[in-house]
């Protein structure tokens, strides 16, 4: 399991970097072709939509890794004090809530995907099904649920880097 999680994080990192640099490349290509005055610029009408769609993937695929690295924002200063003083297992509660919440959202994302497939909605300039917009949150919430679950069962430590981020 540990090896699976490590490998997953590495794959995510590479996919994210490739997606991001791809977005930059496409946008820069658009500017360059237009600046050159080439008539080919007309053929690049799909780039804006494509980059916007890639951005949605960047966002949702990055959320799981952000969780593992303790990078999500929150107010963490009081949590451990409360935990120490009252014995309330706050970290476990957060992991449990996050796990259930993300699984539920992933389930809704499945519903949305089915719905959009049935409705045959397209992204016109890309000529692909609009379902691709909703595969991103589906994947994102599954990846986050995986991290909340792994943290709940002690397979990863997502709280230590978080404390570092918060500077305590």
């Amino acid at each position: 399991m540990q090896r699976f999680l490590d490998g997953l994080a590495r794959v995510e990192a590479v996919v994210l970097a490739a997606t991001f640099l791809g977005m930059v490349g496409l946008y820069a290509l658009n500017v360059a072709v237009r600046a050159s005055g080439s008539g080919f610029a007309t053929e690049l009408y799909w780039i804006e939509e494509a980059v916007r769609t890639l951005m949605i993937y960047l966002v949702f695929l990055g959320c799981g890794l952000a969780l593992q690295q303790g990078r999500h924002v929150g107010v963490y200063a009081w949590r451990d004090r409360i935990e120490a003083r009252t014995g309330l297992p706050l970290r476990r509660l957060i992991d449990l809530f996050g796990l259930l919440f993300c699984l539920w959202l992933a389930w809704i994302a499945v519903e949305v995907c089915q719905f959009v497939l049935n409705s045959r909605q397209m992204i016109p300039s890309l000529g692909v099904s609009a379902v691709w917009l909703y595969v991103a949150p589906l994947a994102g919430f599954v990846l986050m649920a995986l991290r909340f679950g792994a943290s709940l069962f002690g397979l990863i430590d997502r709280y230590t880097p978080q404390m570092h981020e918060a500077g305590e």
Binding site: A13, L16, T19, F20, L58, V59, F60, G62, Q69, R71
Partner: peptide, 21 residues
Amino acid sequence: RLISVTQRAAVSTAVIFILLA
């Protein structure tokens, strides 16, 4: 280095955008 910096920026983006979403 480019890839690791880009990955870090991607995670920063995700952290802001999940809040926007």
